[in-house]
Nucleic acid binder design. Structure first.
Length: 354
DNA sequence: AAGGCGGGGCG
DNA sequence: CGCCCAGCCTT
């Protein structure tokens, strides 16, 4: 597609956004302010803040001269307050080291605090018509989909490819409108959730669309390996009742009844049951293991069946921390799902035979 | 409640 | 230099 930029620009003329408060002029200060406010914040939220901020600080000099507290006060409610602090620092930088004149190229702009490569390019393109590519979240999504760029865009290698692609697509002129077009397409049509491909001028070219992979492009961040833990759990049976232990109020299964965890390093589960609960257990046999996935880790659970003699003492019960739950009452008890799953297996009638 | 996000900061 | 984070928002 060698006419990508032209077609995008044409689309912007008829379907893009033209009436935003920061559009229409070439004052780098106003453009800068809008770009910073628009980082991580939607247009509708930004508009009233932008107006108030500009009324109080109409130019770099007034911003630099103000105490940072005044700047923060006008930012209050927008969030990401580091943006406001950087904005103020940058204004002072501009006054102190640039003689109050906003830097004239993307490279110099990018040296200011709070401004990276993409934001600098946007400011330079809008204010000066500099031919510089941007690569924000919207553009990454648009390029990945239309050109079928594979791999997580946060990866350095993928990001480098995207920068190269973005540079190669730049039009010879009208960079400002082209950049605005990319932003508009990403923000209004090629959205993350349900893109409006029906209205997209590139629907017929778009790799994601043609290959029915809109949900897969851009490639999502790889799931980081979830930590695995494993533990053995004592399933101590006396007649038809199982010994349960109240979990501490905080942590997994907080406050619920669960199977006692056999501490790591314990070899002889029977001996542990004797010293820990005062129970004489005849046999220790492994039950089917199961894994349970929490949000932040995966737990391999290895249940171990122990049979306590019918004459065993009552296991220091009734302090609220321990209880014998009759298996027929399983249904009514509030139990963590994996614990219930382990105990359900014991419903097999032959276990009650003796 | 899980993921996305530009730039900063840290190792 | 590369990875991850803080802080807030959307889905």
């Amino acid at each position: 597609m060698n006419d990508f930029a032209e077609r995008l620009i044409a689309w912007q003329r008829s379907h893009g956004r033209h009436d935003l408060p920061w559009q229409g002029g070439h004052d780098p200060y106003r453009i800068w302010l809008s770009e910073i406010m628009l980082q991580q914040t939607q247009v509708d939220t930004v508009i009233p803040y932008y107006a108030r901020f500009l009324a109080r600080f109409p130019d770099v000099a007034s911003l630099a001269a103000a105490p940072v507290e005044d700047v923060m006060a006008l930012w209050s409610g927008l969030g990401y307050y580091a943006r406001a602090r950087n904005l103020h620092r940058a204004a002072r930088d501009i006054v102190d080291t640039h003689g109050g004149c906003f830097p004239g190229s993307a490279a110099e702009i990018a040296a200011l605090p709070g401004i990276g490569r993409s934001t600098a390019a946007a400011i330079a393109a809008f204010a000066y018509g500099e031919r510089a590519a941007i690569l924000d979240g919207n553009v990454k999504r648009v390029l990945c989909r239309i050109f079928g760029v594979e791999g997580f865009p946060g990866d350095k290698a993928v990001e480098n490819r995207l920068w190269a692609l973005a540079e190669s697509l730049l039009p010879a002129s009208e960079t400002g409108r082209y950049i605005q077009a990319q932003m508009d397409l990403g923000a209004t049509l090629c959205t993350r959730g349900k893109p409006a491909c029906g209205r997209c001028p590139f629907a017929d070219d778009c790799v994601a669309r043609r290959e029915n992979r809109i949900g897969e492009l851009p490639t999502p961040r790889p799931k980081k390996a979830v930590p695995r833990r494993s533990a053995r759990y004592a399933v101590i049976l006396r007649r038809d009742a199982v010994l349960l232990e109240r979990r501490p109020p905080a942590g997994i299964w907080g406050g619920l009844l669960a199977l006692p965890e056999i501490p790591a390093g314990i070899d002889d589960a029977g001996a542990w049951a004797r010293t820990h609960f005062g129970l004489e257990c005849a046999e220790a046999s492994p039950l089917a293991p199961l894994t349970h996935t929490f949000t932040h880790f995966v737990l391999d659970m290895q249940p171990v069946l122990l049979r306590a003699g019918a004459a065993s003492p009552p296991a220091a019960a009734d302090d609220g921390a321990l209880c014998w739950l009759p298996l027929p009452a399983l249904g009514e008890a509030a139990l963590p799902a994996p614990v219930r799953k382990i105990l359900d297996v014991l419903a097999a009638p032959d276990l009650f035979a003796q």
